[in-house]
Write a protein that binds this DNA or RNA. Structure first.
Length: 511
RNA sequence: GCCCCGUUCGUCUAGGGGUCCAGGACGUCGCCCUUUCACGGCGGUAACACGGGUUCAAAUCCCGUACGGGGUACCA
């Protein structure tokens, strides 16, 4: 396949949901795999829901994930503008074309009249009123009104919408690349509004017109669009564009961790996890969210995790770089059923990436976090901390938050464990050990280990008698990196200093 | 309600008629490694929604039922 063109078309109504990121990712992977083009289009046709800053957020989020579009809003390209609100004239012209060829019509019904029609239908026992081939006969449309009357209303500036005239008694069938053949009977389809009375197109019209004009070859979008695809196919036909209609692929939804419905923005707070790539600050706390980035996730881990939510390469490999994903990706391997958002798995992916990331790279990333906590150390020292801690953490901030004693002095001692191990007779032994260490000229971990073992052997001490206490003097806690590695990090003076400082504290605990 | 889509271990999934008393990963449990916490290694637990067909043979194909999800706006 060549000249593949796909698009990601979010509406700027707030922060970009993680499900949207996955849709973007799949589009990116598909385009990249076939050397195609990935277009970003902003679907801002609902003026009432427009949120300032959302467009910038979308770009920043895609950029953070490393899946930037190659054409579109904020990037440029031959089909500009890529913001639908700037393409109003195009949609109007196209909807007029459909009116002219009999595929669409004017409807002058006011919202109140529609509501009344709905209520009347309900009163008659029909609770699913829809504007269709049957009900439109009783409505104020250019199909029923005389041409003169329609013109009169238009000239008078009456509000109107343009609706699709859904043909009667037909079956619309299309092939979804993920689900196979899907069909709808036109009697089930309502006469969708194409142009709203405010002069803006609806999604249905705009997406068909733009996909055609922008030469989109494959539409990869969420499953929530599947039910309206029948209308979309009808639209392509009405325009006479069916021959170049894009292939459709409807992605399974990302479900809540408990499986009850699709993952929504509020679920982040509910389940204590991020559901947005980046943090989003809104006027109210309820509308503000913490992102994967701020949680301390690495973008590669998020991408890898997301890729596997609904897709699988069919092999047993699970860790994939973006390039490897591009290589392995295929629409056929996308599953049909919804996937629950498995936060444990997300954490596992992050841990894997954290462990595999170069020490110096991690150091650069956590530097701001360390400085925010008042830790100021050299880059080399920070790199060493990353080396010692990265195997023990899940998130970036863990490297800082769990290692205060590596940055500075021990802040608090685990007194309970100290009391358990420190005996009145311990002090002379450990003072001797301190002296022994002080005499060391080579302070590398391996050398220290051999030396301390020798020290223990000479005195008939077991590792269990010495090591835990040594750890407590150095870190104040029973957890953390290897004792000798910490010593190497601290160096001779600081190591011995920590030992001697700890002794009096330890003595005080056991009197 | 109606329409559309779906249904393999708790979760993500492999599987596209025989090689499946169903494989991997996360989680969980146990053991090992070990000076701690982790990492890691090894092992255990655990699934083809149900009922009919088709076939010599079905997790795999068909139909139905149940359940789940989505849609049903002058939102996207």
């Amino acid at each position: 396949m060549s000249n593949i063109r796909v698009r990601f078309a979010p509406s700027p109504t707030g922060a970009l949901h993680i499900g949207g990121v996955r849709t973007a990712l799949y589009n990116y992977l598909f385009a990249k795999k076939y050397g195609g083009t990935f277009v970003l289009r902003i679907e801002d046709t609902d003026q009432g829901r427009y949120v300032p800053g959302a467009e910038e957020y979308i770009l920043e989020a895609l950029n953070w994930c490393g899946i930037m579009p190659t054409e579109g809003q904020g990037i440029g390209g031959p089909h500009a503008p890529y913001r639908q609100s700037e393409r109003k004239a195009i949609y109007l012209q196209h909807s007029l074309d459909l009116v002219a060829n009999g595929s669409a019509y004017y409807a002058f019904d006011t919202p109140e009249e529609l509501e009344a029609a709905r209520a009347a239908a309900a009163a008659a026992g029909n609770h699913n009123f829809k504007y269709d081939a049957v009900s439109r006969k009783a409505m104020k449309t250019s199909l029923n009104l005389t041409a003169a009357e329609v013109q009169r209303r238009l000239d008078a500036g009456e509000h109107y919408v343009i609706r699709l005239k859904v043909p009667e008694n037909e079956t619309v069938t299309f092939t979804d690349l993920i689900r196979g053949e899907v069909s709808f009977h036109t009697s089930e389809l309502d006469d969708k509004v194409l142009m709203k009375s405010d002069g803006m197109p609806t999604y249905h019209l705009a997406n068909i017109v733009d996909d055609h004009l922008m030469e989109i070859t494959h539409v990869i979008r969420g499953e929530e669009w599947l039910p309206s695809t029948g209308h979309h196919v009808l639209l392509y036909r009405a325009f006479g564009w069916e021959a170049t209609m894009p292939r459709f692929s409807h992605l399974p939804l990302i479900l809540r961790p408990d499986g009850k419905g699709k993952l929504s923005k509020r679920d982040g707070a509910k389940f204590g996890m991020p559901v947005f790539p980046l943090s989003w600050k809104a006027d109210t706390p309820e509308d503000s969210f913490e992102g994967f980035r701020e949680f301390g996730f690495l973008p590669q881990a998020v991408v890898n995790f997301l890729a596997f939510l609904g897709w699988n390469p069919g092999t047993e490999q699970e860790i994939f770089s973006l390039d490897e994903l591009c290589e392995a990706f295929s629409l056929e391997k996308i599953s049909k059923s919804g996937a629950r958002f498995d936060y444990d798995k997300a954490k596992w992916f992050n841990q894997q990436y954290l462990h595999a990331t170069d020490d110096a790279v991690l150091a650069a990333q956590i530097k701001p976090l360390a400085e925010a906590k008042g830790y100021h150390v050299s880059d080399e020292y920070l790199t060493q901390i990353c080396h010692l801690m990265k195997g023990r953490g899940t998130f970036l901030p863990d490297l800082v938050e769990q290692s205060s004693y590596l940055f500075g002095d021990v802040q608090s001692y685990d007194n309970e464990n100290i009391a358990k191990r420190w005996k009145p007779e311990s002090r002379p032994v450990f003072e001797a050990l301190a002296d022994h260490l002080k005499a060391q000229t080579n302070f590398e971990a391996a050398t220290l280990e051999a030396s301390v073992k020798e020290f223990m052997a000479e005195r008939g001490l077991k590792p269990g008698d010495v090591m835990p206490i040594l750890r407590l003097t150095l870190a104040g806690t029973t957890q953390g990196p290897g004792v000798f590695e910490m010593m190497e990090l601290f160096g001779n003076d600081r190591t011995v200093d920590r030992l001697t400082k700890a002794f009096s504290h330890f003595d005080a605990l056991v009197k």
